[in-house]
Design a protein around this nucleic acid. Structure first.
Length: 406
DNA sequence: TCTGGGGTCCTAGGACCC
DNA sequence: TCTGGGGTCCTAGGACCC
């Protein structure tokens, strides 16, 4: 079963504020250069789409109400929804803040049928959280996700073994989870437009053209998909931790760029320390005003989650390049993660450093982010302004990918 | 007075080694 | 009168997802 909350952020806002109900609204970030994260169905009807900037959205729909997103509300709703889902099946996967997969094999007895179970889930979410969702039920995750997308809002679609071939025969390949615009284009050039065609296409050609994914593409066209539901708490460890930000204005100012790098390094370091993760590599991402985006990565001599070490490495990467123009976006991430051993540092100086970071993190946990921070971040215009950016729907309510609450 | 931010996975090319 | 073949690791970029 795949549960997909309908226009999640927008619906939460409409539930919280009756004045927004029935109106075209769009949830955006507080930053100057922000985009629509979610539009209400009323707004979608009038042409507002996810990813539009504020001005585009207003142009498409002058009556649009822009609402600045509030992460806490979404996490709270997400956690409550997951609690409800866990009462239906022990195997619930938190796929994103507003989507979940449930393995309902063996959970049907009290309900009699998958449909009755789904109706009970929808009822509980509506009563408990005041939101609607679309539910898809199918023999595997690929088809369940497809099914939940077929009826919105408040939908319920069941695909069974008997019905899947008929459904897939004329379905455009791009509708499938995992086949995006580029793959759709490539397949189209091979004469493959529908899932039916994909499922019958020679595996050898697909393999030659698409490598390792080719093998899976043909099976996907047939509706065959083997990945399991990954229950909460049994996810693989994260492979990278990163933050990026689009600056309020493009800049070539070295001092300003450095302050943002320090801020991003602190955000990454703090999150890594919170989860006892250390990175063996640091990656710096830069985007120019023309949207050309590139990254440079460096291997560290030792794994770290120390803000200063991350910053020093990011800065060294920056110093090693010649910037072509001003900078629009900066990003810092760490990868090659290792779980902190908990082993005490060898040298007195390192031990003192670790204690300092621990103390800072604890103060910030108790009194709020950036209660204690580096002096440079307090300088004027250094990115210390209250700029929450846009919430990321890909985040999860728990674990390393927990949404950043501010 | 354009175009967010969080990830994962795969590929290709080069360095390096035997 | 010329330069094999196997492997691993690293980096950069791109496709895809919410």
């Amino acid at each position: 079963m795949h549960v997909d909350m309908n226009a999640f952020f927008a619906s939460v806002e409409q539930r919280c504020d009756p004045a927004l109900r029935g109106k075209p609204i769009a949830v955006v970030g507080s930053a100057k250069r922000t985009v629509v994260t979610t539009a209400s169905y009323e707004a979608r009807k009038l042409g507002v789409k996810t990813g539009m900037n504020k001005f585009e959205a207003k142009k498409a729909c002058p009556s649009l109400i822009l609402v600045i997103g509030d992460n806490r509300k979404y996490i709270d709703a997400s956690v409550r929804i997951l609690e409800i889902l866990k009462s239906f099946s022990p195997k619930v996967e938190a796929y994103s803040i507003d989507e979940a997969f449930l393995d309902i094999t063996g959970c049907l007895k009290p309900f009699g049928s998958p449909e009755a179970l789904a109706r009970a889930v929808k009822e509980r979410i509506r009563e408990g959280v005041g939101l609607t969702c679309s539910i898809g039920i199918a023999p595997n995750k690929l088809l369940a996700k497809l099914a939940s997308d077929m009826q919105k809002p408040d939908g319920l679609v069941i695909i069974d073994e008997a019905g899947k071939a008929k459904l897939l025969e004329d379905l455009p390949v791009g509708e499938l989870w995992g086949i995006g615009p580029r793959l759709t284009e490539h397949l189209g050039r091979l004469g493959v437009k529908t899932c039916g065609q994909l499922g019958r296409f020679p595996a050898s050609v697909l393999r030659e053209r698409f490598g390792i994914i080719g093998e899976r593409l043909r099976l996907m066209g047939q509706g065959v998909y083997s990945s399991e539901v990954v229950p909460i708490g049994q996810e693989e460890e994260a492979k990278s931790v990163g933050h990026s930000t689009t600056l309020p204005a493009d800049t070539s100012e070295k001092a300003e760029i450095k302050r943002y790098l320090l801020k991003l390094s602190e955000m990454v370091g703090a999150r890594a320390r919170e989860h006892c993760l250390k990175g063996g590599k640091v990656c710096l991402t830069i985007r120019y005003p023309d949207f050309y985006t590139f990254s440079r990565q460096r291997t560290l001599p030792v794994h770290t989650n120390d803000t200063r070490a991350i910053y020093a490495s990011a800065l060294a990467i920056l110093e090693s390049m010649r910037l072509r123009t001003a900078v629009r976006l900066l990003g810092v991430s760490i990868s090659a993660l290792a779980k902190g051993s908990g082993q005490m540092a060898l040298f007195e100086e390192d031990r003192r450093r670790e204690k300092l970071l621990e103390a800072m993190d604890e103060v910030n946990r108790s009194f709020g982010e950036y209660t204690v921070t580096w002096g440079t971040l307090l300088d004027e215009g250094g990115g210390s302004e209250d700029d929450t950016g846009v919430i990321s729907p890909a985040w999860r309510p728990v674990g390393v990918k927990r949404v950043n609450v501010k």
